[in-house]
């Protein structure tokens, strides 16, 4: 049987699953972020946190809450890493080195989940559960909260209610609701499903197994399924094991593989649907989600082609590009996973990206460079796409000579400056990061390959960190003070600087009057806008990286 049919079959199953559930999830998310009622368990949480969930925060206060909450998270997790040897269930592992503990703390709080270490060989169960998994939940919730605040900013207007002037909601209410109503229940169900299909969930340490050939192998047990569920659902990506979702204990079958891909795509698409409901125009959410789907489809198509056609001498001689891929999944499922994990901010892998074909690796990198908007991180995907929507109406406004507006909100000088700074932040960080990596001896010291592939290894690492993806190309050793510090800084600023611009813009939109749609208003729910927005994403963002891509994957493809 041709390999094309199963490849198309899994894509069809995924699309069907998403089409059936995204509208329901989207409606539930919209209700979560607009409801006035608090659940009993939420009220208890607010009392413990000593916060008033009904206080409508000014964007400044909302942003400071995001920063304060994240700072505490980093310091706590850093402490966990440095004191690991004294913690119960540490499995005898020593403390993480200082820069490694810091990198890990920043990585998990920023929803990046970049791992310089092998999970099963460095982290005990308590740190996995109380440190890393907790951050998997709350870092995802922070991103979703910011996206909800942005949607609120667009939905509100001080003209209708003067009390909303610059106010975008309550961060702690958004955070607690996201965790308790959305992430926990779905993760629980997904974890049970994974256990049912063979993922492990225990408190075992190492087991030495004797193989049929007389050798021995050490297998590490642990609370894997529970971490796996939120790892995918929250677009986190940090695996229990070093090989992540390529490990049979994390991702046992092609069915669990499909569910893992579904989980990482479901909430980002549902957030787009929820956006339409929050701004009271469902078509807006469908348009934004449509662009996400279009960009993801392009990436899936290109990556699947690259891996299945297997261009290059070595794959042609071997009869397929199976290096670094699980035989359980094959080329097509590996390509679908790679496109989804880099289109979202997940960063989990079921195949080693260093072994993707040169064009395949280039697509994965470009996917991240787009800012992970196809469909992006659980919250960052939506606000990233909405920022580009503002750029699109601005450019369209320039073309027809009208004042640009989005959902009735005028895009003035200050607004477009904020959006421009947002769009520029990640490229600036990424390009400074790769410049630093090639300028110091410590950068190339960790790479495995020379030439353009070695450059790609470094480029992938800084791209992954600056975009808060967390997937690793492999082939590069980053557990050094230089790489841990550089990538930690990229993750930190790559997460919070854009978030601040998003919240500032949300506040401005909430304060602005709503302009009535006129003859010069660009409809933002029609196919024309979908095409324009897709073009803006590819041209404005994508072109920034073309020169640096030429130095790595493009040169490698041509050689």
């Amino acid at each position: 049987m041709s390999e094309v049919l199963p490849a198309l079959g899994q894509i069809a199953a995924l699309v069907l699953l998403l089409a059936l559930t995204v509208p329901l999830l989207g409606r539930f998310l919209a209700h979560t972020y607009t409801s006035d009622k608090h659940l009993a368990v939420e009220r208890v949480t607010y009392r413990v946190l000593r916060v008033d969930p009904d206080a409508d925060q000014h964007w400044r206060s909302y942003a400071m809450s995001v920063l304060g909450f994240s700072l505490v998270g980093i310091l706590l997790l850093f402490g966990f890493g440095r004191l690991q040897q004294h913690l119960p269930l540490s499995l005898g592992f020593p403390a993480l080195p200082t820069e490694g503990a810091w990198n890990t703390a920043v990585s998990f709080v920023t929803n990046t989940n970049w791992q310089w270490y092998s999970g099963e060989a460095a982290i005990g169960h308590l740190m996995q559960m109380s440190g890393l998994t907790v951050q998997n939940f709350v870092s995802a919730a922070v991103g979703m909260a910011v996206a909800a605040a942005f949607a609120r900013g667009l939905a509100r207007t001080s003209q209708e209610d003067s009390r909303v002037d610059g106010r975008v909601g309550n961060f702690f209410a958004d955070l607690v609701r996201t965790v308790l109503r959305v992430l926990l229940p779905i993760s629980l169900a997904a974890a049970f499903l994974f256990i049912l299909f063979g993922a492990i969930q225990n408190f075992s340490g190492d087991h030495v197994m004797h193989t049929l050939t007389g050798g021995s192998q050490t297998l590490t047990g642990g609370p894997v399924a529970s971490q796996e569920a939120i790892k995918q659902l929250g677009t986190n990506g940090g695996g229990f094991y070093n090989v992540n979702s390529a490990h049979p204990f994390e991702n046992p079958t092609p069915f669990t593989d499909l569910i893992q891909i579904y989980l990482e795509l479901a909430l980002p698409f549902a957030m787009a649907w929820a956006f339409g409901l929050i701004v009271k125009d469902k078509r807006q959410g469908i348009a934004v989600g449509g662009v996400m789907a279009l960009l993801l489809s392009i990436a899936v198509g290109l990556l699947t082609w690259a891996e299945m056609a297997a261009p290059g001498t070595a794959p042609q001689l071997a009869g397929g590009a199976m290096e670094g891929k699980e035989t359980r999944f094959g080329e097509a499922a590996s390509a679908l996973f790679a496109a989804s994990t880099t289109g979202t901010s997940t960063g989990a892998v079921n195949a080693m990206h260093d072994s993707l074909t040169a064009p395949g690796g280039g697509v994965a990198m470009f996917n991240m460079m787009l800012g992970e908007i196809a469909p992006g991180g659980v919250g960052s995907g939506l606000y990233g796409m909405l920022m580009l929507a503002v750029v699109t109406v601005f450019l369209a406004g320039l073309m027809v000579g009208r004042t640009p507006e989005y959902l009735g909100k005028k895009i003035g000088q200050r607004e477009i400056v904020m959006v421009a700074l947002y769009v520029l932040t990640t490229p600036v960080l990424l390009l400074i990061g790769i410049a630093a990596a090639v300028s110091f001896d410590d950068g190339p010291a960790g790479i495995l390959n020379s030439g353009p592939h070695g450059f790609s290894e470094m480029l992938y690492a800084v791209t992954s960190a600056a975009n808060n993806n967390g997937s690793a190309f492999g082939g590069i050793t980053t557990g050094t003070p230089f790489w841990n510090t550089l990538l930690g800084l990229l993750m930190l600023f790559g997460r919070f600087v854009p978030m601040i611009f998003v919240l500032a813009l949300a506040g401005r939109f909430a304060s602005a009057k709503r302009l009535p749609a006129g003859a010069g208003t660009l409809p933002t729910h029609k196919p024309l806008f979908v095409v324009l927005l897709t073009g803006v994403a590819l041209v404005v963002v994508g072109l920034t990286y073309v020169p640096v891509l030429f130095l790595g994957p493009v040169v490698e493809s041509l050689s």
Binding site: L67, L71, T98, W102, L489, F496, A504
Partner: peptide
Amino acid sequence: MTDVVYVLITLAAFVGLALLVGALDRPEKD
């Protein structure tokens, strides 16, 4: 000692981010 350095790096980064919030919140000049 190195632990303190990394804690200080983190605090400095967040102070910078808080300053950015403050800068963006400044009222516009007409």
